[in-house]
Structure formats: structure tokens, C-alpha cells
Design a protein around this nucleic acid. Sequence first.
DNA 1: GTCATTTGACCTCA
DNA 2: TGAGGTCAAATGAC
Length: 358
Amino acid sequence: MALIATGATATATAAPVASPAASSMASELMAQGRESAAVLEALLHGASLPPAHGGAHALAAEILRCCDRALAALRAGGDAESSSADTKRKPATAQPSTRRRRRYIYMYVSSRSCDGARDRAATQQEIFCRATASGGGAAAAAEPARVEKARTSEDGFLWRKYGQKEIKNSKHPRLYYRCSYKDDHGCTATKQVQQSEEDPSLYVITYFGDHTCSCQTAAAAAMDDDDDDENSQHFVINFGPATASRSGSPPLLYDDGDDGDVWRETAATPPSSRQSRCSPEGDGEESGVKMSKEEPVDSCPGPSAVSSPADVVSCSSPAMEPDLLGCLNWDDDFGDSSFVDADEFMNFDEIDLFQIYS
DNA sequence: GTCATTTGACCTCA
DNA sequence: TGAGGTCAAATGAC
């Protein structure tokens, strides 16, 4: 399983550093989130869970919640530092912009292996914290919001492509998407997708504006409730597959059922690929790997819609809040984790506290 | 026929 | 003036 945290600033001089307490809390939360991710993966591999369990959808929600809280903890513990760092990062040439600029961190969790037999340890190996070109804080207000290197452009929202542009000194064109509900709901959200120069299997995704529509997956919906804070911070956890591009375009995700291999999407594109669906009840459950999420990290998403049974779900930390009980018992279920601890799992010190700007 | 995508043209800004 | 972003007519898929 790969988890990629992008849009993060890794430079020593620019990255805000969360307090040790915040890092500890965040590490714990992220560890729990990872537990759920591992169970989700197992589920997608065909493992059965107790009937009372909510399935992939619920697991994804738990993962998102854990990550959300972890990031919230980080921000809570690192605001002072980040503010300082942001000030330092702010370029002198910051330019005013009337556009709303939202900067996300993009976390990719592959919940399905390439061929079903893929070694789990191998799938749990990656985490990248990459620096954004613009850094965070006030600098981002003057430069395009940016999300770097996701393996799919899928994020749970329904986008409509409205343009494509060859970019100078770039091998790959930049694709322009706006929310498909722009006309219906006046949703101003747009995004730009460009294939990474360094790794064509990754896509640099830049988000602009806010989703004012309700077009999102259940996972997205579950966490969008608190997305009314203009200054809230967001990240995206994308359970979509790593797919190869099709004609240079970002992969379109689709329901592959239980037998499809979303990591090998290149061979066949389903008819439905023309449009990502916007079914809160469908996307996440159908594939279990397409759920993406925009989440204000300083919010407290409500309890998961699906409760988790104690025999599958437990909370390894008594300090966790009740609604974190959905996190799975790592030791019981996935004691062979390739991650020794959460700190190994994610270097929080390298994660920028990507803020939302307007 | 409807709707999403394509793509050249146009607009804005530095 | 060039680069990037958006528009909108043309095109194609369903």
C-alpha cells in the first residue's frame, strides 16, 4: 500500500514544524488510520469482515477521519511555527489575486494491489512528503494552489474538462477541469492536472476554488460537512488506484467491480469513463478504491455512518475520542506492518501545514 | 438528441 | 509579446 502525502513542504527552512505533542498525537492518529487502510486493503483482497462491519466504505471513512484528526492535531500544535514559517516563505513579489486559492495536501492511499497477489509489505511502503514549489502560508495566496503528484486525478468530485494547454518547457499538457455542477450549483471549483515530469505515473493536481455543490463521493461527503470554513485546511486522501494514463490524460477511474484491476486500467476504459459519477452511495462502495476526500483538517467530522464492531475495530489509544474507535487494532490484524511506528510511517516534521487561502 | 470532450481562438497578465 | 487560462464551436460517443 502506498500512501503519498504531497503538497507538503519538506524544506528545512520553509516547513512549519508541529510541536512534539502534536506530532505524537498525529502519529498515533495516522497509525490508526493506517490500520484501517490495511484492513480495507485486506477486504479488497477478498478477506471477509464481520457482517456488522461497514465494509470498504466505512473503512475509508475511518481512515479519512483519522488522518483528518492527525492533521488537525498537527496544525493545532504547529500554528505558531507555521505562521512564522509562512511569513518567511512569503515572497516579496506576492501578487494580489481575486481568485480564491485553496491549497491542498493530497494523500494517496492505494487500497488495492496491482494483481491481488501483491505483497502487502510492498504495498505499504511508500510515503512521500514533497515540497510545493510555492511553499505554504501567505505565499500560497499569491501563487497557484498546488497539489503535487497524485497517482490519479480522481478525487471524488465530478469534473468536466474545459481546456487543455501545452505548457512551455513541459512535456505534458495541462488539463483544465471545472466542477460539472458549475452551471447547476454555481460551483466554482476548478482543478488543473498535469502529468509529472519526473514521474509520468504521477499527476500534479492543482485545485482552485471551493466546491459549493454536493457532487462528491460518500467519503467526501462524510467529511465535507465542516468544509465551510474559508480558512480551513484541506487534504485529500485518494483511495483511487494508480493507473496509467490514457493518451496522456489522467486516468479516469471507474467501477471495476471486484474483479477489475484498477492498477491496470490502461487496457480497457469502460464506457462509463466519460463521466465520473457523482453518487454518494455508489463510488466508494463499488470499487472501494475511488473514494477521495477533501477535508478540513481542523474540523471534526461526525461519526462514521457505519459503526465498526469491536472485534474488528478497536482503539489503541485511550486518549482517542469516541469516534476514533473505528480505527482498527493494528496489532491484532496487521501486526506484520512494515511500519514500526507512526513516525516511520510519516515524517510529520516534513509536512507543511498547507493552508487555504481566499 | 444529448452531453462530454476536443481544440483553436480569444483574453488576461506580467 | 509570450505564456497561461478560459471560451465556445466542432466533434464524437452513447
